[in-house]
Design a protein around this nucleic acid. Structure first.
Lengths: 235, 235, 235, 235
DNA sequence: CATGAATGAGCTTTCATTCAT
DNA sequence: AATGAATGAAAGCTCATTCAT
């Protein structure tokens, strides 16, 4: 997103801080119920000054959506491409998704709640990205069925169960509670893998395999460096 | 909810129509983003005339929430009190919940999305009712564990999985699609009962038992007569 | 004020009741802050039915003003024309004015407070009537000076003192308190007659003379029959 | 009343101008009958911009009431505490009150007419301040009776006469007429002191004594510097 | 006589956005 | 880089009034 030329070094830092704060407010009060005034007060900047950093209120919403979508999709692509049992990949994908939810709960609230306030092109882009994520999940589930690990169920319905189970978590999770992403991911996958599992099939030790991957690549659930690289995600 | 005295016979009919329309608009655009003007245009009434039927915009939200909560909770209580295997009761509860979601998708959107726009007493009441529903689910899950049908898992986490799976459905379901509430309920419970099931336990034929109940009481998932009786739910 | 022809016998009764109630509400809440709805509720009539009896909200204000002005001015003319010492006539006029204030405090509130909400012709008429009342008072005061009962003071300023003293009473008087119109009138006139009195002049026993008049004509302060004859007052 | 931080130098000036204009409009049309739109038009500002300066319409009313009450009560306290004959103090208090009425006639209109539109805490505060003022007057009248300067009359009724006489002046006075506060005060006190005076008592030369005080303290009737300092009045 | 229903203008207030400085 | 000031549109809601029945 190109800016007018000649910005000082602090520009981007402050800009990111503003988006952070916006996510917090939008999550707490809703996008429509949060005023630009509220945001200005929260970041300690007069309304006029805010517009030096942001283009519009809707643009903030877009940025927040991107911040969720970009790392999520980039990690999902990577995990789906791993050379590992589909069950293990599902387990890793689950933890990656839950990790983002735990780390940036407010962004997720906005992502889940207010994406329908978006209009025009960006909404289309976003829906496309959501569809891609869904396809990645479905691909793994289908592979597990083909291998005989899972019963033959409608892959679409199975995918939606996977997504329901994970995506609704933001509604009640508390980031500083006594559960973490790894714990919940294990519990969810326990249910799903058994639930989808073919009657006779002996499921591999998914947990151990996932552990091994995470030992090698601690950034696998969520890259901490590029965490909020809001670079647009090529679809 | 008694109205000021002296309203003609058409009053209540039109009033219900207005609430219906409001649910539709709120679902599509969000509560905060829908103006009373929009609603007036949609029902073909000037803004002023609208207020002849409604008390306030927030009151519409309350009515919509009640229309979801009242039948849901009343049915849930009844099902939980049935003399049947907890697994069967879970299956019936699942279908009841999904039936409401299918029948009044727009109400559910509002119910799930905009309950945080409520203020004051009613919000407290609503949260209390949601908590009661959650307790009913947890009670059945716990009983299934005590009987040895389910593995010993954290009942709280199990409850949340049940709710995640069902409650997120509104996000993608299409009421006129090729799935119905019974089909989805079967799929969800297939996953959950197997997923939670104790390794050696032979699960009973839940589907057949549930069918029997529904044959006897076709209104069990959702009473069609009193469907939207928005009578307040005694807590 | 001619009505559409063919009104039943109860019409005028109910109409008067409505004006009474309006005066009560206007006095309590102010003319602008009282809605036609409030009035309807107070008289137990739907808004639509009200307009069968009244022409408009402003018209109510006019009627209330008339109900004060008509008896006040009619009595004032009569008293001013009496064959009696000007001091006695002032005393009788004072009591007449205070009697109206006590009897219809709410009308007086409206009269004093909201006459400026009137527009057009009627406001002019009303101001003319107020001026006439003022002239009657001034006439009596002037006569008292000419006779040497009063010091020579600016008659205009003296008149305004008389009016200030009486007309502001509505602000704090309580009709069911332990003072009545006669008591206050005596107190006010005590102050005024002594205050205006010429240094050497021996003031007559005004109280006794006034008593005599009232014995003969108990209706002198305020005609109870024609009390609210809202017939328009010829100016 | 500190404003949100960071207002330019012109802010307070314009703010005061707006309150002035509001007083003018409220006086002419009444508080309830004056719209924020009217006010905006009168000060040449769009409705939205007005709210940059004011908090609410009711707040304007509060400020106007304060502008009357604060200087009035502060001066009244000071005068009541003077070491002088109660009659002289009454004379000074009278002139102080009339001076405020002359100087800010529109504020007084609002003060007298629309105080009942106030709600909540501020109304209570205001009524308390009005009661205090009344107590100060009554105190002086009582002292004059104790000294034998005045006849023994009901102090409450005497107080109300003092207040009626002065407070109703706003109804007809014209600030640019040929009378001023000093003239009217002299006339009113002439009437009251003689009217209340004990039969045999030789009243001191109140006018001369009052003149002496005013020569020493030209700001005694009304401090011109802090004239509209709307600082809250400690009760 | 009286009602329920409707309207359109107006109310107070908040909003996202702009811009000269 | 940031501010104070301004705008015009729109928000939720109330109002006086009308009228078919």
């Amino acid at each position: 997103m190109p800016r007018p030329p000649g910005h000082g070094p602090g520009f981007e830092v402050r800009r990111q801080k503003i988006i952070d704060t916006a996510a917090e407010l939008f999550a707490r009060q809703g996008y429509a119920a949060t005023s630009v005034n509220d945001l200005g007060r929260a970041v300690g900047l007069a309304k006029g000054a805010l517009y030096y950093y942001i283009d519009s209120k809707e643009n903030l919403l877009i940025e927040i959506q991107s911040r969720v979508m970009a790392p999520l999709l980039s990690r999902a692509r990577e995990i789906a491409a791993l050379d590992a049992d589909p069950l293990v990949r599902l387990r890793l994908l689950s933890e990656s998704l839950l990790t983002i939810i735990f780390r940036r709960l407010d962004h997720i609230w906005v992502y889940e709640h207010d994406y329908r306030s978006l209009t025009g092109d960006y909404l289309q882009t976003l829906l496309g990205q959501r569809a891609e994520f869904e396809r990645l999940v479905r691909g793994l589930l289908t592979k597990a069925m083909e291998r005989g690990s899972f019963r033959a169920v409608d892959p679409h319905v199975a995918t939606l169960q996977f997504l329901n189970l994970h995506n609704h978590t933001y509604q009640w999770v508390k980031p500083d509670g006594h559960w973490d992403a790894a714990y919940l991911s294990r519990a969810y996958c326990d249910t799903l893998l058994r639930g989808f599992g073919a009657p006779g099939a002996a499921l591999p030790d998914v947990e151990e395999a996932a552990e091994a991957f995470k030992r090698d690549r601690p950034d696998l659930p969520l890259d901490p460096e590029a965490e909020w690289r809001s670079a647009s995600v090529a679809s």
